[in-house]
């Protein structure tokens, strides 16, 4: 069942609308932090090479855009792969998922951090 899910990808087009691919979660942004789920579960044998490379690259925390750069794939396509790998439990969003602008406390923390350089 997941097998077919992975086979699906080439069919799903990654039409870019405003920099995002559809279908995908609107919670995924280029700066969204991702990390492979380290539970020893292997990808199904049918998984494609992009999925394998993606999980391998994401053994530590990286943003979606970094994954795309390392994999030499458009961010929009990686967003689709990532979205499916999250649904299948192989990948997790590390950063808090938010639709909002960064809050005042976060902005102040960033400013403080920059001042300490």
């Amino acid at each position: 069942m997941q097998t077919d899910g992975f086979r699906d990808h080439p069919v799903r087009s990654y039409v870019l609308t405003g920099g995002r691919a559809h279908p995908t979660r609107n919670t995924l942004r280029p700066e969204t932090l991702l990390c492979a789920v380290d539970d020893g579960r292997e990808l199904p044998a049918s998984a494609g090479r992009h999925e394998r490379a993606l999980l391998e690259t994401c053994r530590g925390t990286l943003a979606l855009a970094e994954l795309a750069a390392y994999l030499h794939l458009p961010t929009s396509l990686v967003a689709v792969l990532v979205s499916d790998l999250i649904d299948a439990g192989y990948l997790a969003v590390r950063s808090g998922v938010t639709h909002d602008l960064p809050g005042l406390d976060l902005l102040e923390e960033v400013l403080d951090g920059l001042r300490r350089f």
Binding site: R29, P30, E31, T32, L33, R59, G60, T61, L62, A63, R94, S95, G96, P102, L106, L107, V110
Partner: peptide
């Protein structure tokens, strides 16, 4: 990779 302590991002 980012340090394990990093838990959020802004741009």
């Amino acid at each position: 990779h980012l340090a394990p302590t990093v838990e959020r991002s802004v741009k």
